[in-house]
Structures are given as structure tokens and as C-alpha cells.
Design a protein around this nucleic acid. Structure first.
Lengths: 340, 340
DNA sequence: AAATTCTTCCAAAGCGCTTTGAATTTTCTT
DNA sequence: AAGAAAATTCAAAGCGCTTTGGAAGAATTT
């Protein structure tokens, strides 16, 4: 069923039917009712393609998901992020277009999305220090919002970020206050902006308390369960092992816990853990009382908010770019206790 | 840059330029070279919308991701699945369109995708017993392939599935052979087809050995870390607790492990675990020696294969639906040992 | 009752591409 | 070298929608 068929059926012109359906005022209320009823009954949905051609809009938002590094890992937060964003998109009549990008293909993908008019805007995931995607998108004129921020990029752009520095500063401070002096940091790759900021927070908190930063207690790597385990295992075998760990992802924290218990120690008593918790739906941090003490910020919520920011920007391209800095909660769980 | 501009620039007609770019034979090799060079230099990409309108193809594949149940959980395997599928799509010039569906909206979403000509086909995720989506898609004539199968659906359709019954039958048999007599099953919701089949395998293996099925040792629930923990905790407190657990997801297995260790027991010595392992990129099952003994099947690989099956089907709609039953490997890890 | 203003509707053009059918040029036959 | 065949190229129609610029009819004013 297309517009022509529907309008023939109703004995009206395509113009009138189109206007009735799109809420234009130049059509009588009686006609509009009739048209809407018929459209509904016959399951008429305008072709997105044709509509897009005519209006110049794609009614779609692009997500380019980077597959990090050699292991081609998909960020585990991704599912929850798009679940949040998708909700907003469908409320606003947008569709969500996904591409997976290997290291070298990202620029070509963005250029292609723009040139082919496939999307009205994109969400930039996993910003890095000096992220080249931001100037690129500005150059080609594709609206975008960034999930996170990119240090060293001086131009103004819209972003939403968790205050990663503050979060890790507070987490580190908490551990210090509990008497911990040797605190390990299991971080993501530090060319990733968020990891850089977390490290910054960690270092700042230690420095404030006159504690030195020990490179042997820091890792910057792919954030998997395995890396948490391996790193913790090594560190616990040191002459002066850490008494607390700070991890960037709950999955990594689970690996740390595995190493702790394998060493015959008890989490929360012998060794403490604080982790960042993205509040993923399939990886809840325990029930009423969290398992892990954590800096918590819902990635699904971030998805919703970023989607709305992007849609706002597409609708009003001249508005100033929005910025949103979310504070993570610091929730106390069972993984922390006083240093022994 | 659009077709007209490019052809004006070259002093050729749009027809010729279009044909040169699309590999039609009615154009001289010299012209083709010239056209391709110019197209490349000026970064010309045909508008997907216009192309789609003209050809009747969408050059896009739809994924409708169900948000299960009240917790609105996104299946953790999703990221890896689309990473696999996305690779095939981009190789074939397809884009990937995502919608998230709440319980009631799925049918409307599929009908909309078809009516709006947004996609050429869809991948059906998480098939259930008697899944209504299959007859629906057949009725509206939208090509599809199913990740899994739907018991009780009698019509023929294309699917790719892991042999879940066999996998869990083998896993159960392994535990029995190790001397376990009380084996718990922590399963997904049993209206999900895969969970149903796994239960079937479990029951079959027990029956073959004359072991009875104890309802107290079976759970069918959302597969989270938390549910694994809670279920294991309860079961370990029984008068005659299980000596082994069979779980449907590695995350659930991690919860079970947590309960085991909290009870002062040791996994692999006091209590065994066998889990299904989807080989997710961010949740590797240990390094050289797996942590968990597992039935393993890569969901990323499934994504690749299903994407190819769907594209094949779109290209040749009259071909008979393909079926593909993958056998899961049974890999031995450190989580199993003889019953004590 | 004629002139004017609203309302309500419509025909046709245009979005950027593909493709049909025809026209032109080149190459091959005889 | 003329006629036929093959190789190139092109103009125009069409995909399904929106939107511009009118037109027709109804309501209002003089």
C-alpha cells in the first residue's frame, strides 16, 4: 500500500492525504479523521526511503562501533547503551544504523554515511585522546554527540560524560581512608580518554595524601576478566603486594576476585576492591547490598540522554553544543574493608 | 556531489556514469576507468535512499532486539553477534538497522519494517517455543533467518542453531561419569527454545543413567550473575545439596562460583560446574586452560554465518531455506572434578 | 448580488538514482 | 566504400514521497 493507492482509495489527492497524515493545517478535521482511519486500517506506512528523498532527512542515527585492538573486542557496555538510545529513537521516529569498524576503516565509514545520506547524525563511542573523529565530523558537517570527551580537542562539540576523574579520585580516597597504602589500578588503555581521566583521579588522590605512585601497581590494558585475574595474580605475588584494587569494569573486578580467592585471601577482608559499575542489565552488582563497592553510573541512562541530545541538535543545528557531566555514585558494597 | 553533478563534470550522461559505476557491460573500459577515477577523487557515493527507491532494495538488514521480561535485560551475547554479522554485511554492501522491542511492540515493528521498506530482511533473535514471529514474517513476506529454532513451528524456515540438547546431554553425561549424582540445572526461561532443548538434554542424560530429576535442583530464570549466585546459595543449603551445577551462561556460572566460595567450598574439588560458553570477546573463559569446563560455541561465528545465509536468501528467494546445526565443543577446564 | 477572503483541495515538479528504448558512433562484412 | 552489425552513449520515465503554486468552493463582507 503506497500513497497513491491510499489516495485513490479515498478519492483524494496524494497532497491532501500526505498533509492529513503529517498534521498540516490545510486540511479539514473531517478529512483528516477519514484519512487516518483508512491509513491505519490498511496498514499504510510511508516508505522511509521516499520520504527521505523528498525531505532530505534520513530519519536515522548512526552508531559506529569500534572493535578495539587486535582482540577485536566489542565493548560490553554497548548493548545497554543502545537499549537506552533506541528507546528515544523510536519515540522520535528515528531508526538506528550500526556499522562495526576495524581500526583503519572508521574515517571511510563516517564519510560514507554522510555522502550516502544514510543518517542525520552519529553518536561517537569510545573517544580517545586527540580523537581524530571529532575534527573529521566537523569538517564533513555530520551532526554528532560524543559519549565521553576527548582531551586535547579544543573545538566545541556536544558531549556527555561521567566525571571519571572525580569518581576515581573519590574511590581512591575511600581506600586511603580505610588505611590502604598500596592501591593497584587496573585501567583500560590509556589512550582512551576515560582511562586517562581515571588515572588522573587516582594519581591526584594519592598525591594529596602524600602517597607515591608505584608503576608496578598500574596496568593499562584490555578490560577483560582475564586481564583482571592475571594482573592481580602477579601483583599479589610481589614482595609488598597491594591491599586494594581499583578496576575500570566489573568484569575485570571479577577477575581480580578470582585471583584473590585463589591466593587463599578473602575479598573485603584481606584485599579490597573498588570498581566502576556501568549498571549493565545482565551484570547487576548484587542485590540490595552491592557485592562490589563501586562508582556507579548507568550507561543505559547515558544512551537515552545522548540520543535526546543528538535529536535536539539535528532539529536545531544552530543551538550551542550541549555538555553534560554526570557524577557517578559511590556505592558501598562488600568488597571493601580496612587495611590489615 | 550527486550523479548529475558528476556526469556534468565528465561530460557524460547520468546513464553512462551510473552504468560505469555499477559494472554494466554496455560501457567502454576507457570510460569506466575515467568515471571511476573521477568518482573516487570527488568522493562520490550514491545516495542509498535514491538507489533504494529506484531499485526497490533497502540494502539493509534489520535486527529487532527483544528486551526480555520486566528487567528489560539486553542479551549479553548481542554485541558479539552483531560484530560477526556486521562484518559480512559491510562486505556485501548492506547496512544494519536496529530496533529495540518491548514485549508488545514486536509485531508492529516487523510490520513497520516491511511496510516502510526499511530492510530487505531480518534476523530473528531469541526464538521461543511456538514463536509467533515466524508465521508473521512468512505472512508479510519479509525474508528472515532465525538464530536458534522454534519448537512446534511446523513450517519450513531458515535457521542456524547450536545443538543445545546434545551439548547439555554431553555435559550432564560428563558430570555423571565423574560420579556426580545430584546435578543442578540453572537454565534460562524455558519458554525460550534453547533453554527448553537444554533441559531436554539434561533430562535425557539423567534418565539414561537411571537418575531421577529433582525439581529442587532446577531453575528457569533470567540468566544473570545474581541469579546464579542466589540459586546456588539456596541449593547448597539443602539437606542433600548438589555436587555439580550446569549453567546456561558463563556469567551465571560466575555467580555460582561466588556462592560456592562463600560457602567455603572449592570449585572443581568440592563442587563442579559446567557452563555453556558463547566465546564472548569480553568474557574469555580463561587462557590456555579454560577456567570453566564448558560447552562452547562462538556466537560471533554464528552471526557471520547467519548474515551470509540471509543475504543468500535475499539474493535467491526461491532457494530452499537453509538449516545449520552446529555442534558445541565440550572443553575441559578447572571447574570439574570427581564427585567426593 | 457582486466582490472579497478563507478553506479546502489538487496537479505537477522535484528529491537522486536505475533502467528502458532509442540514437549515435564505431567496427566489421562483402 | 556502402551496408549491416556491434558497441557506446543518451533522453526520459519511474521509484514513493513532499511541497509549491494554483484553483475551486464556501463563507464573509460590501
Amino acid at each position: 500500500m503506497n500513497l497513491k493507492q491510499l489516495s485513490d482509495l479515498l478519492g483524494l489527492s496524494q497532497t491532501t492525504v500526505s498533509r492529513a497524515l503529517n498534521g498540516y493545517p490545510e486540511v479539514s478535521e473531517a478529512t483528516r479523521q477519514k484519512v487516518q482511519k483508512a491509513a491505519h486500517e490498511h496498514g499504510y506506512h510511508p516508505s522511509t526511503r521516499a520520504k527521505g528523498l523528498a525531505t532530505g532527512q534520513a530519519l536515522a542515527i548512526g552508531h559506529v562501533i569500534p572493535m578495539y585492538g587486535k582482540s577485536e573486542m566489542v565493548n560490553p557496555i554497548f548493548g545497554d547503551f543502545i537499549a537506552g538510545a533506541g528507546e528515544i529513537y523510536s519515540q522520535n521516529g528515528y531508526e538506528m544504523l550500526l556499522s562495526v569498524a576495524r581500526d583503519q576503516t572508521e574515517e571511510a565509514i563516517y564519510r560514507g554515511l554522510k555522502a550516502r545520506h544514510s543518517v542525520d547524525g552519529v553518536i561517537v563511542h569510545g573517544p580517545q585522546m586527540d580523537d581524530p573523529r571529532i575534527p573529521l565530523l566537523q569538517e564533513i558537517g555530520l551532526p554528532f554527540v560524543v559519549h565521553g570527551r576527548a582531551s586535547n580537542v579544543t573545538s566545541d562539540y556536544a558531549w556527555l560524560d561521567v566525571n571519571n576523574k572525580r569518581a576515581f579520585e573519590r574511590a581512591t580516597a575511600l581506600l586511603c581512608d580505610l588505611g590502604h597504602r598500596r592501591i593497584a589500578l587496573l585501567n583500560g588503555f590509556e589512550h582512551m580518554d576515560f582511562a586517562h581521566r581515571r588515572r588522573d583521579g587516582y594519581v591526584t588522590a594519592l598525591a594529596e595524601r602524600g602517597l607515591s605512585v608505584d608503576p608496578a601497581l598500574m596496568r593499562s590494558d584490555e578490560m577483560t576478566e582475564d586481564m583482571g585475574y592475571a594482573a592481580a595474580q602477579q601483583m599479589l605475588a610481589l614482595g609488598t603486594p597491594p591491599t586494594a584494587f581499583l578496576t575500570a569494569l566489573m568484569i575485570t573486578a571479577m577477575g581480580v576476585r578470582r585471583a584473590i580467592e585463589e591466593a587463599g585471601l578473602k575479598m573485603g577482608r584481606d584485599v579490597s576492591i573498588v570498581t566502576h559499575d556501568d549498571a549493565l542489565s545482565y551484570l547487576q552488582n548484587g542485590g540490595d547490598v552491592p557485592i562490589y563497592t563501586a562508582t556507579r553510573s548507568s550507561v543505559r541512562h547515558a544512551g537515552k540522554q545522548l540520543a535526546q541530545m543528538l535529536i535536539d541538535q539535528i532539529r536545531d543545528p544552530d543551538a550551542r553544543p550541549e555538555h553534560c557531566l554526570l557524577e557517578a555514585e559511590l556505592v558501598m558494597g562488600q568488597s571493601t574493608g580496612p587495611a590489615t
